[in-house]
């Protein structure tokens, strides 16, 4: 009896493994391996959601994350063909690479919009006490940025432009790393800093800095975009389309849950847990959750792209002589995958 049962179990095991093997085989055949260059920020959550929920698999994409410490290397890795897709802010370096014909912007991700959670304008306690309490007092003050040509540099430029004063009157302090800027802000060595909400809220709540405004008060801003290599848009257009569909579903889930966190607390909790696998993974969940939740920023619905703002950014970098002037926005965006709006003439 025992022997017979064993035999039956054995037989079914063989059959089961065979089935599993066949299933794996077909999947492996169908699913195309695609690398997504990712940073461990909440603004990248849509990709993590789409992956965890199997949206990429549904499109026959075997997605692999390649994690980076900074935005710049993502663009380089795509230009060199090591990574297929990336989501980062538009920077001088990005535009220069794209201008050489290596990269194409194919969709929008994070978009600063009035009233939506977004980047905050912080001033150091020292500067605040000395009277730096409104944005129009920026002339003569210093601002911490990572590097010249970074999105931080651009944001400082936008504030100068929107308030109608000479950009040269703001003292730029390139400090390479966000951590270094935070340190300099806390100790009062720089007067101000414009930073994403999850960091800004932490600093303000801890009393380490004061918020004097929102970036969105001065301009709508297409902060990050999805991009890929020009080679992919030309030779694997179908794959790019499927990738964007999957990514778009992740964006939709994120918007539904994270942009209205009180509506369904259980769903918010579940999604925060999912994101925590990738963001602040080294911190305990209880500590990470508030940062993740407060870092929920506005993602473009359907990855729609604010082409007009991309054009504005490019022109600003070109005017600053940080980007070569030999190309325009048309050369670096491919609008065949998502809805585009605010299209310049």
């Amino acid at each position: 009896m025992k022997h017979r049962l064993n035999a039956t179990w054995h037989r079914s095991l063989i059959a089961g493994s065979a089935l599993a093997l066949i299933a794996l085989g077909t999947l492996a055949q169908a699913a195309e391996v695609v690398n997504l260059g990712a940073l461990r920020f909440t603004s990248h959550a849509a990709g993590y959601i789409a992956y965890e929920k199997g949206y990429f698999r549904d499109q026959g994409i075997d997605l692999k994350f390649k994690f980076f410490q900074a935005a710049q290397p993502v663009a380089v890795a795509i230009a060199s063909g090591d990574v297929d897709f990336g989501v980062t802010a538009l920077t001088g370096g990005f535009f220069n690479l794209a201008g050489k014909g290596a990269l194409q912007v194919i969709g929008g991700v994070w978009h600063e919009e009035k009233g939506m959670n977004g980047s905050a304008i912080l001033v150091s306690n020292k500067a605040f006490d000395a009277g730096f309490k409104t944005v129009d007092q920026f002339p003569g003050k210093s601002i911490g940025i990572t590097q010249l040509g970074s999105s931080f540099h651009y944001m400082a430029g936008q504030i100068a432009e929107a308030n109608g004063f000479d950009f040269k009157e703001i003292k730029l302090k390139p400090l390479q790393k966000v951590g270094a800027i935070i340190g300099a802000l806390k100790s009062g060595q720089v007067d101000s800093f414009i930073i994403a909400p999850h960091i800004a809220k932490g600093l303000v709540n801890a009393g380490a800095a004061k918020q004097i405004g929102w970036l969105y008060d001065y301009a709508p801003y297409q902060v990050t975009t999805v991009f890929t290599s020009t080679k992919n848009t030309k030779e694997k257009s179908d794959l790019v389309g499927r990738f964007m569909k999957a990514y778009g579903r992740g964006v939709a889930d994120f918007r539904r849950v994270m942009l209205d966190q009180d509506k369904d607390p259980a769903a918010t909790e579940a999604m925060t847990k999912l994101i925590h696998k990738y963001v602040y993974a080294s911190r305990p969940y209880a500590k990470a959750a508030p940062s993740i939740k407060s870092g929920a920023i506005n993602l473009n619905a359907g990855n729609a792209l604010d082409v007009g703002d991309v054009d504005k950014q490019l022109k600003w970098f070109q005017a600053q002589k940080l980007v070569s002037s030999g190309f325009s926005v048309r050369d670096i965006v491919d609008l065949s995958y998502v809805q585009a709006y605010n299209i310049p003439n």
């Binding site: 380089v76 920077t91 370096g93 590097q147 010249l148 040509g149 970074s150 070569s324």
Partner: peptide, 11 residues
């Protein structure tokens, strides 16, 4: 600083 900027700008 010039070299760093050039690197940032991919110049």
């Amino acid at each position: 600083a010039y070299i760093l900027l050039a690197g940032n700008l991919m110049a």
